[in-house]
């Protein structure tokens, strides 16, 4: 169909709006990147906008030379890997049996779904963890939130889309449920598993409230909580003296560099999984 002139102008107006949206989304990230790469003096003189002034990597070398940061980054990375693997394992264990017509299935599904609508709250959780001696134990950052009902629903909805005939023919060949899971269902669900892995990993990497509430041992602070403490120290000079830096401007670039360290891993992962997570989100929304 041939487009009229006004329709073509309209197309470019749409492009223009999208470019504005892109700028709005990227400017904060670019600004912080520029700050982390700039010299402390340029920062203080308000010269840094979107491009670094007085290029240098001082902030990054300082951060990488400080065992407090490197340990926190390493610990958060370890934690993220463990949490993702464990959560994925639990999600599969929970979702797969519920696609069968099991006796008692309604009960199990009800038991799980109810927790989506009503939860006991923060303090009861705190008291339970205290009772279980999980407070200030590194396991508190892994176990209490390792399973998300919403992600179980997403996975189960996906498993339902795999035709029953595949399962039935495997059953005729004598395969048990476990074999069918490993040989038929899991290979077919790699896209949705990748999506859930991304969600769980991002959730753990970005999470801090559980550490804030249930973890007092600074050694086990995830990077976000460390970052929060750095960013919210009353003013930069105080941070500078606390952290032992002499120039206040440097501490500003270090704040920016720490933010970059916490952000960059995510920037590298999510675009590659975009195709998958769109499918995952849509699946959860339609059937959830």
């Amino acid at each position: 169909m041939v487009k009229t002139r006004s329709a073509k102008i309209g197309d470019w107006v749409v492009v223009f709006l999208c470019v504005i949206m892109i700028i709005v989304c990227l400017v904060p990230v670019l600004n912080i990147a520029a700050r982390s790469l700039s010299s402390a003096d340029a920062l203080i003189r308000n010269e840094v906008l979107l491009w670094p002034k007085g290029w240098n990597l001082d902030a990054y070398t300082t951060v990488l030379g400080d065992s407090k940061y490197t340990w926190s980054l390493t610990w958060t990375a370890i934690l993220t890997v463990i949490c993702t693997v464990w959560s994925l394992f639990m999600t599969i264990l929970c979702a797969y049996p519920l696609i069968y017509d099991l006796k008692g299935k309604k009960f199990f599904v009800g038991l799980i779904l109810f927790t989506m609508y009503f939860n006991a709250g923060t303090i009861p959780m705190y008291l339970l963890l205290k009772e279980l001696h999980l407070l200030n134990n590194p396991l508190v950052l892994i176990i209490p939130n390792c399973l998300s009902v919403f992600y179980v629903i997403i996975l189960r909805s996906f498993l339902y889309t795999i035709p029953d005939s595949l399962r039935e023919s495997a059953e005729i060949d004598g395969a048990g449920p476990l074999r069918i899971l490993v040989n038929v269902y899991l290979p077919l669900s790699t896209p949705v598993l990748a999506t859930l892995a991304l969600f769980y990993a991002v959730g753990r990497w970005n999470g801090f409230s559980d550490a804030l509430m249930f973890m007092n041992d600074r050694k086990y602070y995830p990077i976000q909580l460390l970052l929060y403490n750095i960013l919210n120290s009353i003013n930069s000079i105080e941070v500078a003296t606390q952290e032992g830096f002499t120039t206040p401007g440097l501490s500003e670039t270090i704040k920016a560099a720490t933010v970059m360290f916490a952000t960059v891993p995510i920037l590298f992962v999510y675009p590659w999984l975009q195709r998958y997570f769109i499918a995952g989100v849509t699946l959860g929304a339609v059937k959830g």
Partner: peptide, 18 residues
């Protein structure tokens, strides 16, 4: 989609500076 993947600590850090 990018901002969805940033934690509120990071966003707050960016906001404080920006």
């Amino acid at each position: 989609y990018l901002p969805h993947f940033l934690s509120w600590i990071i966003i707050s850090g960016m906001a404080l500076q920006l």
